[in-house]
Design a protein around this nucleic acid. Structure first.
Lengths: 360, 360
DNA sequence: CTGAAAGCGCTTACAG
DNA sequence: CTGAAAGCGCTTACAG
């Protein structure tokens, strides 16, 4: 449509192809040296005479030359792409987003770039993402594995790909996870200490690793605190806040309702808060939620939460991945990042009848 | 440390280098064909005889061959890397995270991968990120530009890089933004219609594009509604919720405090909510915030917010970027995605004295 | 200190 | 329908 002068690079001595980037050859021609000398200057080798260095630098500036990273790593002996990938359940989820940021920050310190994808808990999408990343020869992948068959991972490992999982475990792989079971036990115990004996549990899909661990922790605490381990108090396989809201309403309108709730995930916590509001029970029924939620401290009562540290999880996973890429040949390492219990009101409500007024 | 048998690919006919991936040459040797035929099969060309196709496919499976994307695009005439990059202010911020997700989803539909970086509003980090992406020959960049000199962008455009900005404008570039000014005017008018004449404004750094537009919209509405356009009601250059909290307290303890607040950004909204709580004025002073905040509907009163649509912004920016990559040669296009006003309580509080009780 | 040749893994442009 | 040669932009391995 427009004539070609519109976008022709002003300094290009190359052919007039639009947007054609100058190469080492163009720089070498302009500087009157060999391409090898250009390569030496670009890579900061110290063996080039100052005169030539200056001429090459000038030519690079004049042409706006930028080395082609892919071409250089194709021939380089280390064979590294200096790129890693991260596959998370949902990049828009605050937990995943913070993990991602931790990974990117750690990678940047090493001049490594980061590709990313969301799996949405779909094993096929997850595998396809890893296949696409493999084609780009990424040096490693950080994976929040979906629930599903991961036998395909063997082939990647064999081909030399480094893999570290976050949030969940895969047998034989490095991982960085929260102390799910212990933290869930602490949360449940926190409620039991206030005198609660009937504590409800709301959980995500039971086959998700974190959901299972958190249920185990809940039961650990019930056992230790002589709470009632009643199947009627447990609601699992809840997806999203709407289902959690329904389940909470149903649970609290049974003949023997719990006096406290432990919710195993941030969306479930939000659903439970909604339900308690609807029932007018938010100052009567205690609540501790796994995962902190933005504004949780501003609710009335404030939300007592187990805050994970997703950015730290991301940073540690990236550090471990780089250790593997650098050749660490040790046994698989599972790192546990503890969650912190933040008492802010909702978890300190005593059982119904014990003390009707709750202080802000 | 471990002996080499531990990680040697079982089927590799290649040299015994650990993790060495098979190449077209290995596949060709095993299948008894030329590398060109392997290339044809891999790229799905229809001209290969069924017998050879089968032999090549079998060899690919046996060796676990995966094409090297970088090597293929090095020689390919279109010169596309099928990779784009996104530079946002903070990948962990919910707004940025949602934009990012929108971009990644749109890119995946085209088999394009996405690199990402956070600029943290630092122009040097932003430029360095783009330089690193250029070295990887990304086909384009989606940029949430920091405030600062962007003359360096010219060189990138000249070299054939496609660039689309989100959230903020750069002269001469495609952009996808919220209707900041109009939405801010709607929010302010919403308060004025309830009878508020003294409406406070809290804003981010005044030189940030969105902050400036939102202040203009606030003033537009004050003019139209005959509200008091009093400099004493405006607090700008606030960074983060803590500064907003301070400014709100200071503003509300002056001799002629506002009866309503309009906050120009999500963190500032959170700071204002905190301040209102501390002062016990959350049911007395009206509040409308730019950006929705998770759990905003569960506060008491619920938070009246201008909800942007960051995922849509990301999707549109990616679509526009791909149009440019495909050669669209039209004038720069600025797309405006409207924000929605969500009345949930805090913005419907009447001026002090008019009606002390607010319904939930 | 500098450069000509070969090669990284693949595709293009030809020839059969 | 199939393949040998050349080349993408760069680095390695040599030679001077």
């Amino acid at each position: 449509m427009s004539d070609r002068t519109a976008a022709t690079p002003p300094a290009s001595r190359n052919d007039a192809r639009r947007g054609a980037r100058p190469t080492v050859r163009d720089v070498a021609a302009l500087a009157g040296v060999s391409i090898k000398t250009v390569s030496r200057v670009v890579n900061g080798e110290k063996t080039v005479g100052q005169l030539l260095v200056d001429r090459v630098r000038a030519a690079i500036d004049e042409l706006g030359y930028r080395p082609d990273h892919a071409a250089s790593s194709l021939r380089r002996s280390d064979g590294r792409s200096h790129t890693i990938a991260v596959v998370l359940e949902d990049l828009a989820n605050p937990f995943s987003a913070a993990v991602h940021r931790g990974v990117v920050d750690t990678a940047r310190a090493r001049d490594v770039l980061v590709l990313s994808a969301s799996s949405d808990e779909d094993p096929a999408d997850e595998h396809n993402a890893v296949i696409a990343f493999t084609a780009r020869r990424v040096d490693g992948v950080i994976l929040m594995p979906s629930t599903g068959d991961h036998r395909w991972i063997r082939a990647e490992l064999t081909a030399g790909m480094a893999i570290v999982t976050v949030d969940r475990l895969i047998d034989g792989l490095d991982a960085v996870v929260t102390d799910n079971r212990a933290a869930a036990a602490r949360a449940t115990m926190h409620l039991a200490r206030r005198g609660h004996r009937r504590i409800g549990f709301l959980g995500d899909l039971h086959h998700i690793y974190t959901a299972g661990e958190r249920l185990l922790g809940y039961r650990d605490a019930l056992r230790d605190a002589a709470g009632e381990d009643d199947e009627a108090l447990v609601r699992q396989d809840l997806r999203g806040s709407a289902q959690a809201e329904e389940a909470t309403i149903e649970l609290l309108t049974t003949s023997e309702p719990p006096t406290a709730l432990f919710t195993g995930q941030n969306l479930l916590t939000i659903g439970a808060v909604r339900a308690l509001r609807k029932l007018g029970l938010h100052h009567e029924v205690a609540l501790v939620g796994f995962d902190d939620v933005e504004l949780g401290d501003l609710l009335a009562p404030g939300l007592t939460a187990l805050a994970q540290d997703p950015a730290e999880i991301g940073r540690r996973a990236a550090a471990q991945l780089f250790a593997r890429i650098d050749g660490a040949d040790t046994a698989p390492l599972v790192q546990v990042v503890p969650a912190r219990l933040l008492p802010r009101g909702s978890g300190e409500i005593p059982p119904r009848g014990a003390d009707p007024k709750v202080k802000r």
